[in-house]
Amino acid sequence: MKRVAELLRRIGARVVDGVWRLGFAARFFALVLLYSGQSFRRLHLTLRELWFSGVLSLLIILVSGLFVGLVLGLQGYEILQRFGSSEATGTMVALSLLRELGPVLAGLLFAARAGSAVTAEIGLMKTTEQLTAMDMMAVSPFARVVAPRFWGGVISMPLLAALFSAMGILGGWLISVVFIGIDEGAYWSQMQAAVDFRYDVVNGVIKSFVFGVAVSLIAVFEGYDCAPTAEGVSRAITRTVVSSALTILALDFVLTSFMFRGQS
């Protein structure tokens, strides 16, 4: 009986703690937006973060995009030629990349590559009391540290996702046209006939923007909220990667069911 009560108490504490953190995260998000104007006045801070989270993620995004495109081209051809419609390989590659794989995989890679780095940086700043020192000098850590990192992530994420999709489509072209030998005209024209700008491209960009906001917010929040110890920072980094991945996948399901419900 005592054990059951203990278990219930622990579950209750977890739930209350979760709600507490959620409320804090919401207030944190509002603060970040509030201080964004101040941080944009010193634009070089945001530019530096754009370099860290955008430019330095280029290589991993481009290479993985290429490989995902190669695999999609190979598998798409293999499956579609059974139905005698191997010309539709381009359509399949383009639609799956633009609608789902581009934003989602770029988001996951971005969370692992840039989100974890941001959490570690802010967490260590907190641990070594740099954030407190800034506050003492009447420099808001939100405007100086948090908001530039947040916006750096939000701006670079749609660009990275677009690069991922473009690279994947080129990869699909490489495998199916250059190596397998599908007709090049069929590859591009069937793709153009099936891909709609408003419906597929814009929805993919909206998705990647939403993922960018989610991942960047989680990264800066976990860093800001971490326990100021070595162990606390490492835990915060793990939480960033895990909860970013889960959030991206869950949000993707929600967005897909809104955007692509029952049409065509």
């Binding site: 660009l159 690069l163 793709m191 153009q192 491209v201 993919g204």
Partner: peptide, 21 residues
């Protein structure tokens, strides 16, 4: 950063002009 933003936007253009109709 300029290079990154430029090729990102180029990729968006590629997607909307060459891939999409």
């Amino acid at each position: 950063v300029g290079f990154f933003v430029a090729i990102g936007i180029a990729a968006l253009f590629f997607l909307s002009l060459k891939v999409g109709s």
